[in-house]
Design a protein around this nucleic acid. Structure first.
Lengths: 226, 226
DNA sequence: CCAGTATTCAAACAATTGTTTCCAACTGCC
DNA sequence: GGCAGTTGGAAACAATTGTTTGAATACTGG
């Protein structure tokens, strides 16, 4: 072992560069150069660039998955068969998300990676995440369902994704937004601040009144095909 | 002119491919091949790939900017110096967003492009959009400010971005989400449906109670550096 | 110490990228 | 009709990409 393991040095560098510039825009020479390892090391240790990308994600998501399962276990034990309130569920999720990357890396990087996983083409990534970590989210959604019985299932589905959009979009674009906020409002927000700020917003969003049903007769404006 | 202008054939193809796979993952040969124009045509008509990307955006954003300015003009004329309610502002925004791409292209593509503009590295793009279309949004934000006087400026700033995240994330990942929704809930949602569904959620989000101030003494969990 | 495995390294590989070049085809105009 | 300038097209360009190779080196168990 030189100073730190080659594998972890590659992972550490890759996740930062991926988060900064995206997957396609980050070349292996870029990574290996900055990590001061040989170019072939990536293909030797991981097999391919795609495998490296997945490895970067599992290093975050494996501990997250474990901890979140554990946190839900504890929650269910504490509440018995009473309903766990929505706020508690969201707090637990937030706490776990905040804890995991804090141990080694930055939450900003983690969220940026998550955002990329959704927005970049990279079909293999979405599939990988879905296959590997789908069960945790299914479990979470089931609890949210009990906490919001007044919501139709499909409405809850969409609203959870609305909330997911809020979180991922904000935290993955954090740097740019923070710059503006600091310049315009002279306030320095930490990630924890932001999560605290999101909490009432997300709760209100999930509990919002149901939309009025689709109008049978369209309003005055011409109806486009989109 | 062959059948349709080469320039518009390039733009039509490029926007679809960009939306499907991202900018870096879409090669010029990909575009020119599908558009059945010569490879050199892109560099001849647009100058570079970067310029092509910007051209794709202005074809959407120019009409949007014009229409939205006009819509706000009319709104201000109608309301005089009374405050325009938040719901009306959001409705106007939604209507304009729905109208513009409907004339020629799909809203899904438009939103996917917007999402990419935020998430992909492509620094030049964010700068271009900011420089070119910043004033429209500034105007909109000023009206929202009057409509939500109870919100601190910085809080409104963040919440507007929360809402932006909801919209862009949902509509740019529309296809995947729609597939799930159709499979799991057997309901076919149109873009208009989704926008209608988002409306009360966004309104509630913006009007949510203010977060409790940051705790002076951190909770039991160790405070990470992120 | 030595055999054998695991790792590192420089170099080359084939494929793909954006861009440029140079020439043919076409356009409108006097 | 012939000449300007614009557009179309095939080929080549230089640069960069992910991956593979084969030899050199480091490590490990006996």
């Amino acid at each position: 072992m030189a100073q730190t393991d080659t594998v972890t040095r590659i992972l550490d560098t890759a996740e930062v560069l991926f988060a900064e510039r995206g997957f396609a825009e980050t070349s292996l020479r870029n990574i290996t150069g900055k990590a001061k390892v040989n170019l072939a090391a990536v293909n030797y240790h991981f097999g391919s660039k795609k495998a490296l990308i997945q490895a970067v994600f599992s290093r975050y998501l494996d501990p997250f998955s474990d901890r979140f399962h554990a946190a839900i276990d504890e929650l269910e034990r504490g509440y018995g068969d009473r309903v766990i309130p929505l706020e508690v569920l969201l707090e637990t999720m937030a706490r776990t998300v905040l804890e995991v990357p804090a141990e080694r890396h930055s939450l900003k990087v983690f969220m940026r990676l998550l955002g990329l996983a959704y927005s970049q083409a990279q079909g293999h990534l979405r599939r990988y995440i879905q296959d590997q970590y789908g069960t945790v989210f299914t479990r979470f959604v089931a609890l949210v369902r009990k906490a919001t019985p007044e919501l139709p299932d499909s409405e809850r589905f969409w609203r959870l994704h609305f909330a997911l959009g809020t979180v991922i979009f904000t935290l993955s674009g954090l740097d740019a937004l923070r710059d503006i906020a600091e310049k315009d409002y002279d306030e320095h927000v930490s990630v924890r601040d932001l999560v605290r700020r999101m909490m009432p917003v997300v709760v209100s969003a999930l509990k919002a009144p149901l939309p009025e049903p689709a109008p049978t007769t369209p309003p005055a404006t011409r109806e486009p095909t989109a």
